[in-house]
Amino acid sequence: MTEEPAPPAQAVFEAAVDAEATARAVAAAAPVAQERADLSLASTLEPKLREPMRALLTSLADNKYLLGRRYAEWCTGAPKLESAVAAAAMAQDELGHARSFYPLLRGFGSPSHMDDKGWQKASTNAVAYLDQPFQHWANYIAANVVLDTALTTLFEAATESPYEPLRQRAAKIVQEESAHWVHGSGWLRRMAEQPEMRPALAEVWDDAFTWFGREDDAAFAPLAAAGLLSQGPDALRAALRARLTPLLDEVGAGALLERELPWQRWAATRRRLSG
C-alpha cells in the first residue's frame, strides 16, 4: 500500500500569518459607518448618565444573548415541529438584538464583549434563570412569557428616548417581540395545567420582576429622571404586571401576582439575584 504524503504542516495555519488576510479580517470586524455614528452619540449624554446607560446596555445585551442561546438549545427539542422552527426564529431574533447592543458599549469606553477571545464562555450579568439550560419546555415558555416580556417592557419605555441608538433599536425590537408574545401566551394557555408549568413561572418570576431594580436604582432611576426612559423601576414593574395579569388570570395562575420579591438577594451592580 502506498503511503499518502502528509500535507504540508505550514499550510494549515497559513492564513493566521498572512498579513493581508489578517488586515481584511480586522477591517471586516471594524464598526461600519452607522455603528461609528452610534458610538459617537455616547458622548452627547450628560457625564453622570453615561455609567447608567452603559449598565443598561450591558444588561440588555447579556440577557438577550443568553436568552437567545437558551432558546436555540430547544431548536431540536420543542414538542412540535412548528415550535422547533419558531424557537430557531426566536433565538435568531434574540441573538440579533444582543449583537446590536454589544458594539454600542465601545462608545462608553468599555471593550465590547465580543472583542475578547473566548467571549462565548465568559460569565455574563444575565439573570440567574438563564445560568443553566432549560430543563423542560415549560422553562422555555416561562422565560418566553415573563422574562422576554420584562425586557420588552423596558424597550417600550425607550421608544421615545432622546438617545437615538437605544430608541431606534427599541422600536424594532418591540415590533419583533409581538410574535414572541403570541408564541408564549399561546403555549401557556395550552400548558397551564401541566405540573411543570407553575414552578417554572415562579422560578423566572423573581428574576424578571427584580431586574428593573428598586425605585432608587443607580442605573434605571437616573435614566428615567433624565427622560431617557419614560418610566422608572416601579412603573416598569407595574407595566409588566399589567401586561401579564389578564393572561395569568385566564390560565388560573393569578396567585403569582401576589408573590413577594426577594430583594435581600438582589445584587444591584450585576442586575441579578444571587444565590
Binding site: 412548528e82 422552527v85 419558531a86 430557531a88 426564529a89 410574535a179 403570541v182 408564541h183 399561546g186 394557555r189
Partner: peptide
Amino acid sequence: DDAEMAALFAQSI
C-alpha cells in the same frame, strides 16, 4: 390552537 399561533408558525416555517 388558534389563528394567531397558526400565523406565527406559518411565517416561520
